[in-house]
Structures are given as C-alpha cells and as structure tokens.
Simulated assay, not measured.
Amino acid sequence: MSRLDEKARDALPEGDFAFPKERKEPLENASHVRNAIARFDQVKDVSDAERDAAWKRILAAAKKHGVTVHEKSWRELGKPKA
C-alpha cells in the first residue's frame, strides 16, 4: 500500500476519506480502497448510519479506481461466502 505522510494526509479533503469526520481510511487510490475495506471493522466509535455512508463512499471509490468489491453491504464483511 502506498503510504501517506502526515502532510499529504492532512492535505486530503474530507471527501477523500471513508469516515470524513474522523479522517479515517483515505480513498485516493486502489490500494487505499482495498485497505479501507480490510480495516472497516476496526474503526471505532461510529454509528451504523456513519458506516452506511462510509460504505457508499468506499463503493464509489472502488468503482473509480477499478477495485472489485464482492460484498453488497459492510455487514457482509468477514462472513463466509455461501
């Protein structure tokens, strides 16, 4: 994954994060989108509504950066595939 130094991360607009209020999980490239999906459940102190909104931002970023997402909802993350 490409690393963001503190200055570059601070320069990102809120809309470039899955969780903009918390500035968690940047979404500016495919590597960060995949990482945001992998770490989604590690974000603490957010409501289900905030998770729903974050998931929509992740799906939009995934489409933009050519990342395939198999889950339709964040609630499917970590569950065995049927």
Results as ranks from 00 to 15, higher is better:
residue 78 G to Y: 04
residue 33 V to F: 02
residue 23 R to P: 04
residue 8 A to V: 11
residue 50 E to D: 11
residue 6 E to K: 08
residue 46 V to K: 00
residue 68 T to F: 12
residue 49 A to H: 03
residue 40 F to P: 02
residue 8 A to M: 12
residue 5 D to W: 07
residue 34 R to M: 02
residue 39 R to Q: 13
residue 44 K to I: 11
residue 76 E to Q: 12
residue 4 L to R: 08
residue 34 R to D: 10
residue 11 A to M: 08
residue 8 A to W: 01
residue 42 Q to R: 10
residue 7 K to C: 01
residue 57 R to N: 11
residue 47 S to K: 12
residue 80 P to A: 03
residue 69 V to E: 05
residue 62 A to M: 12
residue 51 R to H: 02
residue 63 K to N: 10
residue 5 D to V: 00
residue 60 A to Y: 00
residue 24 K to I: 10
residue 20 P to S: 02
residue 4 L to Q: 11
residue 11 A to L: 14
residue 74 W to D: 11
residue 4 L to W: 12
residue 79 K to T: 06
residue 22 E to I: 08
residue 14 E to R: 04
residue 81 K to F: 14
residue 51 R to V: 09
residue 75 R to Y: 04
residue 25 E to G: 02
residue 73 S to V: 09
residue 14 E to Y: 11
residue 81 K to P: 10
residue 65 H to A: 12
residue 11 A to I: 14
residue 70 H to I: 11
residue 51 R to S: 05
residue 70 H to G: 04
residue 3 R to Q: 13
residue 4 L to A: 13
residue 9 R to Y: 14
residue 46 V to W: 10
residue 58 I to Y: 08
residue 64 K to D: 03
residue 16 D to Y: 03
residue 38 A to F: 12
residue 53 A to Y: 03
residue 76 E to D: 03
residue 68 T to Q: 09
residue 62 A to G: 06
residue 73 S to M: 07
residue 73 S to L: 04
residue 1 M to E: 08
residue 59 L to W: 00
residue 41 D to Q: 01
